[in-house]
Amino acid sequence: MRIALCQIDTILGDVGKNLAKINHYTDKAVYENCDLVIFPELALTGYSLRDLTDSVALKTDSELFKQFKTKSREIDIALGYVENGNGYFFNSGAYFSNGEILHNHRKKFLPDYGMFEEGRYFASGRSIEAFDTKFGKTAMFICEDSFHISSQNDAFKQGVNFLVILSASPFWMDHKGMKPQLWKSLCSNFSQFSSSYSIFVNRTGFEDGVGFFGGSFVMGPYGSIIKEAELFKEELLIIDFDESLIEKAKIMMPILKNEDIEIC
């Protein structure tokens, strides 16, 4: 199993140009024989949309998605976009596979503190739902979803083997550390406790001086980094997975086994 993590920069509010870039990288991933290609949060639109939000929103049955559906017969595609849900807008992630949208996740936790204004423009998703992909049980988070223990708990209890995180995480640092470390420790914990792969795909580029740091990575089921991309630069990171590690990790640390849930 081979996955392509596309940490790309986007053009704010220009769906056409972003689409061209996404198609370009998708074709590269197909050429490299990847099974899945993942793009960041709001990859089709850019992040700090403010009053552009409504003008870049797409319905799930949009014409524009047809090309991804077609392409998904060759390769699974996960990407972030603005969803128009009956006139309200969601920060969503679509997972295309086998000619259809296999799963659509609406970001559940919208940050509205510090520099963030998502709560002002978007409506919240209601749930974290695991779904079956050709690789196994998968859940998709969008950025801030990851910081909520409840999302991690939802994914954990549904027994996910793959956690895909679409992100537009801005860089900051202070005397205690910097943002990229925070993501690594968060994903390391989740991967260890759930014996799963965590795949963090973060965008790059600047929007009015706010820099998205990239640094995408795959965290293995033992909680250590398998491979990571550079900071601040656009990159296509290709990773070959050893799926057998998931079962081995579960034998070594069978945490879910002792939860009071039906294991399927």
Binding site: M173, H175, F206, G209, G211, F232, K233
Partner: peptide, 24 residues
């Protein structure tokens, strides 16, 4: 010491900032 920064990372970040914000 609380004002100490990681010059390696910050310099890379600022170089990208100037480059990208001008080129775009």
């Amino acid at each position: 010491d609380k004002l100490k920064i990681d010059c390696n990372v910050v310099s890379k970040y600022l170089i990208e900032f100037v480059k990208q914000e001008i080129l775009k």
